[in-house]
């Protein structure tokens, strides 16, 4: 766990965390202040039940972006700096090394998400929505499924490909996952070869937006699908196996 904690401390020094996270926190506070003029279909959004999905959408999206940004160069940089040799001489396997680095990526991503949920919690308390406040931990974990998927995926990809390529693929998964429903509709509407190709692509991209939606539903006291949560956890589990399977060749 020493490797993981060292990596976490290093990440806490990264400016991207504070820039992206800071903007998101400011945006959330602005939205919660009542000064914003959001509207959907011409109707102003002021009601708590209408604002909450907006909050969760922003938190979910920014958490996913941060998960990629914070995970993208971790493993690659360790090898670039040649610090990996210091690890091998201690008898640590590649799996343990990559696993702890990936865990550090995951931890820092979830910590950033936690900060956003703190802001959301303050908003819930301010709105007198205590029943929402008490449901925040499970909602945080549901949203965390998307964060974990993208963080782990980026970590795993960066074992075998350059950081840029890993980032591009992860971003494609992020966009496909966040717009999964819309793209699914487009695939069904367009039809033909293009529609089929899009359908196959979507069948391997997890529906990340569904996690944000389930999180919102749970906070509002609605039922969520146990199956969908298990699908998310299973996805994390399957990605984690690549930490065992994939090996990095050192020069």
């Amino acid at each position: 766990m020493e490797i993981m904690m060292t990596a976490v401390k290093e990440k806490l020094r990264r400016k991207e965390l504070y820039i992206i996270g800071g903007i998101a926190v400011l945006l959330l506070f602005f939205l919660s202040s009542g000064e914003s003029s959001l509207s959907i279909n011409g109707e102003m959004i002021t009601d708590f039940t209408m604002m909450l999905p907006v909050f969760l959408t922003i938190i979910h999206f920014v958490s996913c972006v941060l998960a990629i940004v914070l995970s993208i160069g971790t493993i690659g940089k360790e090898y670039e700096r040649k610090t990996s040799h210091l690890i091998w001489i201690r008898g640590v396997s590649q799996f343990q090394y990559h696993g702890q680095l990936a865990l550090s990526n995951l931890m820092i991503s979830l910590m950033a998400q936690f900060v956003f949920f703190v802001v959301l919690g303050i908003y819930c308390i301010g709105q007198g929505q205590m029943q929402c406040f008490f449901r925040m931990i499970p909602a945080y974990l549901i949203t965390g499924i998307s964060t974990a998927i993208l963080s782990l995926l980026t970590s795993v990809l960066s074992i075998v490909m350059p950081a840029f390529a890993a980032g591009v693929i992860s971003t494609v998964v992020l966009v496909g996952g966040v717009f999964h429903s819309l793209l699914g509709i487009a695939a069904g509407t367009v039809g033909g070869a293009g529609g089929k190709a899009l359908k196959y692509l979507l069948s391997v991209i997890p529906d990340l937006n569904n996690n944000a939606k389930m999180s919102t539903d749970f906070l509002l006291g609605k039922q969520v699908s146990v199956h969908d949560i298990l699908v998310g956890v299973l996805t994390i589990y399957l990605i984690s196996w690549f930490l065992v399977i994939l090996k990095k060749k050192e020069a």
Binding site: V226, H227, L230, L234, Y237, L238, V244
Partner: peptide, 22 residues
Amino acid sequence: GRILYGIFGMVLATATVLTGSY
């Protein structure tokens, strides 16, 4: 550890399949 992790995965996959509607 890997065996236990594998068993955990099988339980997870089974639970996922059983809770789904088709």
